[in-house]
């Protein structure tokens, strides 16, 4: 079965939700014309990135009618899109939602909010506390959603692979550190290496959609890509420019990769958990939690 995926590498307008909803719908229609069944838009694609105190003004609940309407743009199409989510208890999260028709198929709240260097996300949004996968039905199976910095923590994609994901979707708003210089290109290369590695180790497909455009002094670099379950690049968008790139993954390739390289099946989760429990206890100077640790 073919999974045909469109990466909509766009430059959202900061703070203009209506314009960004239109932009997202426009890319979904263009993706449909090219046969895609899933369109991925970047992190905060509906709001822009450097929001600061605009956060409560642009926030939407996950069941907001505007999101449902976006989901209905193309009948049957899945769309993953980043937005500012306001929870029932008024936490403001940097979230990605997976929609189809008027339904919310999946929702992920960014767990790791970078608040260092040029980033100040923890100042304006609150972290999520769930790492899950979402059943999108045949042929998609389970999809693991994440947002940008989440991918710099290997535990997250690996948990999602263990939780049954065939496809990891990471949406990003990655600003360039030093465009054109060796240091800047290394940073982009680091992102791509990391995606290849997760695909290889998780024997999963990876769809990465990073925004472009400019906000204040920041320039977002794009370079969105689709990686197969063997770590090979299927399609890659250009740096800096808006683009709609489309690629396909055959679910049979995932199946045969997992037969040939059964890393997921060989994983020893009980062992991992025991060692994690031990490390957590030792760090907090707590007594051992498991009998296994007794001499």
């Amino acid at each position: 079965m073919e999974l045909r995926i469109a990466l909509a590498q766009v430059a959202p307008s900061l703070g203009d939700v209506e314009a960004n909803l239109e932009l997202a719908a426009d890319r979904m229609r263009a993706a449909e014309a090219r046969g895609a069944g899933l369109t991925v838009l970047p992190e905060l694609a509906l709001t822009g990135y450097l929001l600061s105190d605009l956060v409560p003004e642009v926030a939407m609940r996950a069941d907001d009618e505007r999101l449902a309407a976006l989901g209905r743009t193309v009948p049957g199409m899945l769309v993953a899109v980043g937005f500012v989510e306001e929870t029932d208890d008024h936490r403001f999260c940097n979230s990605v939602v997976l929609l189809r028709g008027g339904d919310v198929i999946g929702l992920h709240r960014k767990v790791y909010l970078p608040t260092y260097g040029l980033f100040d996300e923890g100042r304006f949004t609150r972290p999520g506390d769930r790492i899950r996968t979402h059943d999108a039905g045949a042929p998609w199976g389970r999809i693991g959603l994440s947002v940008c910095e989440d991918f710099w923590h290997a535990s997250l994609p690996m948990l999602q692979a263990q939780d049954g994901a065939q496809l990891l979707v990471n949406v990003a708003a990655g600003p360039s550190r030093a465009p054109g210089s060796a240091a800047g290109l290394e940073a982009i290369d680091g992102w791509h290496k990391m995606q290849d590695t997760y695909a290889l180790l998780g024997t999963v497909a990876v769809a990465f959609c990073n925004r472009v455009g400019n906000e204040e002094g920041l320039t977002f670099w794009g370079g969105s890509r689709l990686v197969g379950p063997n770590g090979a690049t299927i399609v890659q968008a250009p740096l800096w420019e808006e683009a709609l790139v489309i690629g396909s993954i055959d679910t049979d390739d995932i199946r045969m990769q997992r037969y040939g390289v059964p890393l997921l099946a060989d994983e020893r989760l009980e062992l991992v958990r025991r060692e994690l429990d031990r490390i957590i206890a030792e760090r907090a100077d707590l007594p051992p939690t498991s009998d296994d640790d007794a001499p």
Binding site: G117, L118, P175, S176, R177, A178, P179, G180, S181, A183, E216, G217, L218, T219
Partner: peptide
Amino acid sequence: PPVAKVSLRTPGID
């Protein structure tokens, strides 16, 4: 005024 970030450390940004 914003500074166009083109290096690893930029006044006002990082």
